[in-house]
Amino acid sequence: MSDMSEAPKIERIEDPISRMANNRQFRMLADIPVRMSVEVGSTSLRLADVMDLAEGSIVELDRQADDLLDIMVNGALIAKGEVVTVNGRYGIRIVDIAASETRLAGLEQRG
């Protein structure tokens, strides 16, 4: 985790998606709210194990501590990143954008 209290402004890189965003038809979609979440890891537990959890319990996840985290939008993987702190709050630094095939596959699975 790094301190990002002096974080620079987000720089926009011109790419095909940015050009589409400037298109009038796509601009009307810009106000649609989406849910971004970050997944640290996961595991499978039996219901009995979940019922046995108590304060101080530790649940081991399926990731190494130095692995990148999954950045999800509406449940679809869009990028990988790492945790940073920004003015005493958690943030996420985008390290890798998921390939468009991966992003679309996440949307198709939910459809």
Results as ranks from 00 to 15, higher is better:
Ala21Glu: 11
Ile71Trp: 00
Val95Ser: 09
Asn23Thr: 03
Val38Tyr: 09
Asp70Trp: 02
Arg89Phe: 05
Glu60Cys: 08
Glu55Thr: 10
Asn74Gly: 02
Glu6Tyr: 08
Met36Leu: 15
Asn74Pro: 00
Arg12Thr: 14
Phe26Gly: 05
Asn74Lys: 00
Arg63Glu: 01
Ile10Tyr: 07
Ile13Phe: 13
Ser2Phe: 08
Val50Glu: 03
Val95Lys: 13
Ala48Thr: 11
Gly106Asp: 00
Asn22Met: 07
Val86Ala: 04
Leu68Pro: 00
Val59His: 08
Asp52Gly: 10
Arg110Lys: 15
Leu53Val: 03
Val84Trp: 03
Asp62Glu: 02
Arg110Met: 13
Ser100Lys: 14
Met28Glu: 15
Arg35Leu: 13
Asp31Met: 12
Glu60Asp: 11
Ala7Pro: 02
Ala7His: 03
Gly81Met: 00
Met28Ala: 12
Arg19Thr: 11
Arg89Thr: 06
Pro16Thr: 01
Gly75Tyr: 02
Leu29Gln: 03
Pro33Gln: 03
Arg63Gln: 01
Thr102His: 12
Pro8Val: 14
Ala54Met: 12
Pro8Ala: 14
Gly56Leu: 09
Ile94Arg: 03
Leu61Lys: 02
Gly91His: 00
Ile97Phe: 12
Pro8Ser: 11
Val34Gln: 09
Asp70Asn: 14
Ser100Tyr: 14
Ile94Trp: 09
Met1Lys: 06
Asn87Lys: 11
Tyr90Ser: 14
Ala7Arg: 02
Ser42Met: 15
Thr85Leu: 06
Asp52Gln: 14
Gly106Trp: 01
Thr85Gly: 03
Asp15Phe: 09
Ile58Pro: 15
Glu14Gln: 13
Asp66Arg: 08
Asn87Glu: 13
Ile17Cys: 04
Ala105Gln: 09
Ala79Met: 02
Ile17Glu: 05
Glu6Lys: 13
Val50Cys: 04
Glu11Leu: 10
Asp15Gln: 05
Asp62Arg: 01
Gly88Asn: 02
Leu29Met: 12
Gly56Met: 05
Asp49Thr: 12
Leu53Tyr: 05
Val40Trp: 11
Ala105Ser: 09
Met28Tyr: 14
Leu69Pro: 02
Gln109Arg: 15
Arg93Tyr: 12
Ser5Glu: 11
Gly81Asp: 00
Glu39Ile: 10
Ser100Glu: 13
Thr43Phe: 10
Asp96Gly: 07
Glu11Ser: 06
Met51Thr: 11
Arg110Ser: 15
Asn87His: 08
Leu29His: 07
Ile10Lys: 10
Met20Leu: 15
Glu108Gly: 06
Val59Met: 06
Gln109Glu: 14
Glu11Phe: 06
